Amino acid sequence: MKIIDKSIEAYSIEHSENEPKYLKALAKETWQKVLQPRMLSGAYQGRLLSLISKIVAPNSILEIGTYTGYSSLCLAEGLAKDGILHTIDVNEELVDMQEKHFKNSPYYQNIKTHLGDAQNIIPQIDAKFDLVFIDADKQNYSLYLDLVMPKLNPKAVILSDNVLWDGKVANPQINDEDTLALRAYNEKLITHSQLETVLLPIRDGLSISRLKD
Rank of each mutant, 00 (worst) to 15 (best):
L131I: 02
I61H: 05
A25Q: 14
A25F: 08
N186I: 02
K188Q: 12
C74H: 04
L94A: 01
L35R: 11
Y67A: 06
M97N: 07
A127E: 14
D166N: 12
L48M: 14
W31F: 14
S16H: 11
Y144V: 05
I174C: 08
L48A: 13
N171E: 11
A127V: 10
K112W: 06
N59L: 10
P150R: 09
N162G: 10
A170Y: 10
K168G: 00
W31T: 08
P106I: 11
I202P: 07
G78A: 02
E187V: 00
I88C: 05
T197R: 00
I4H: 09
A43Y: 07
A25I: 04
Y185G: 06
I125Y: 03
P20M: 10
F102C: 03
E17Y: 06
G116A: 03
C74I: 02
D137I: 11
L94M: 07
L199E: 14
L85S: 03
F102K: 10
S16N: 10
S207P: 01
G42M: 09
V163F: 05
D126N: 13
I8C: 09
L189R: 00
V163M: 08
R210K: 11
F102G: 00
D213T: 04
D176G: 06
K21T: 08
L199I: 15
G116H: 12
S60T: 14
S72G: 12
V169A: 06
S60A: 14
R210G: 07
Y67K: 06
S160I: 02
S7L: 10
L145N: 07
L51T: 11
I202S: 13
Y70D: 12
M149V: 08
G83P: 07
A118N: 01
D178I: 04
Q32F: 03
G42Q: 10
T179R: 06
Y44Q: 14
G167H: 10
G116V: 12
I52R: 07
